[in-house]
Simulated assay, not measured.
Amino acid sequence: MFNKDFLINIIKIIIFALLQVFVFNHINFLGSYQPYIYIVFVLFYPPYQNKYALLILAFLLGLTIDIFEYTGGIHAFALTLIAFIRNPIIKLLAGKQEYEMEFFTFHSLSFAQWIFYLSILTCLHHLILLTLENFKLEGITPTLLKALINSGITLVFVFIYKILFKNKVGI
């Protein structure tokens, strides 16, 4: 588990955490909507690599964001949860079995499947994160609206990331 890829992923975690904390946390749209670009790490993590390493790395990335923002573990929980359900969603979208996942690449997804994959994981992450941040049922409609708007903003930045690092990501 602790090989060259794991160490490269640790460096990626550090870069994404620093970008989120020092750049993207200071980008606010309409005063309260911000992108959470650090989820790119989980979205583009190669599906053929160790899924347990992904869970550990996702937890560490979320925990790092929580430490910087004093948020008590909500980022770690939300990111670890989407890392946990990522492969089942890929299998569902691509129609793959467990033994076929080591040969799977994101290139085999159609554009619509890829958009659905990004949208469902991004919306789920934001919904969990903002629900835990709000943690009351009376404001569920504003929380849902904020999660959808934040997801849209994040998806724009994910697409920009994809365009900038076209050959570097797994898609």
Results as ranks from 00 to 15, higher is better:
19 L>T: 04
161 Y>R: 01
45 Y>H: 12
165 F>S: 03
149 I>G: 01
74 I>C: 12
108 S>T: 09
3 N>H: 12
31 G>S: 05
127 L>D: 00
31 G>T: 03
69 E>I: 06
74 I>K: 14
109 L>V: 05
78 A>D: 01
171 I>H: 09
2 F>Q: 02
37 I>A: 10
109 L>W: 07
82 I>A: 11
111 F>W: 06
13 I>R: 08
145 L>Q: 11
89 I>F: 10
100 E>T: 05
46 P>Q: 00
112 A>N: 03
106 F>R: 00
148 L>E: 03
105 T>S: 14
118 L>N: 12
132 L>K: 11
90 I>E: 10
107 H>V: 08
21 V>Q: 09
92 L>Q: 04
19 L>D: 05
4 K>H: 12
114 W>P: 00
110 S>P: 06
116 F>S: 14
43 L>G: 07
152 G>S: 07
96 K>I: 05
18 L>W: 01
105 T>E: 07
58 A>T: 03
157 F>N: 07
65 I>R: 12
99 Y>N: 10
118 L>G: 03
16 F>Q: 00
18 L>I: 08
100 E>L: 13
65 I>F: 13
33 Y>K: 00
71 T>K: 13
9 N>I: 05
138 E>G: 00
132 L>Y: 06
147 A>D: 01
82 I>Q: 11
50 N>P: 05
18 L>Q: 01
69 E>S: 15
8 I>K: 14
121 L>F: 04
81 L>G: 00
70 Y>G: 10
7 L>N: 00
71 T>I: 03
55 L>H: 00
93 L>I: 05
100 E>P: 09
3 N>K: 14
79 L>P: 04
97 Q>M: 08
123 C>W: 09
22 F>L: 14
28 N>A: 02
95 G>W: 13
78 A>V: 02
135 F>K: 00
152 G>M: 09
123 C>Y: 10
163 I>V: 10
96 K>L: 15
88 P>R: 10
152 G>N: 09
67 I>L: 15
144 L>Q: 06
12 K>P: 01
169 V>K: 00
120 I>V: 15
74 I>D: 09
42 V>R: 02
43 L>C: 07
125 H>E: 01
43 L>S: 07
138 E>L: 12
71 T>G: 02
2 F>N: 05
170 G>F: 14
95 G>D: 10
94 A>Q: 07
31 G>I: 02
109 L>P: 11
97 Q>T: 12
67 I>R: 09
70 Y>L: 13
11 I>V: 15
28 N>T: 03
4 K>Y: 13
6 F>L: 13
61 L>R: 05
70 Y>Q: 08
84 F>T: 12
162 K>L: 15
151 S>T: 08
93 L>C: 02
88 P>Q: 09
52 Y>F: 15
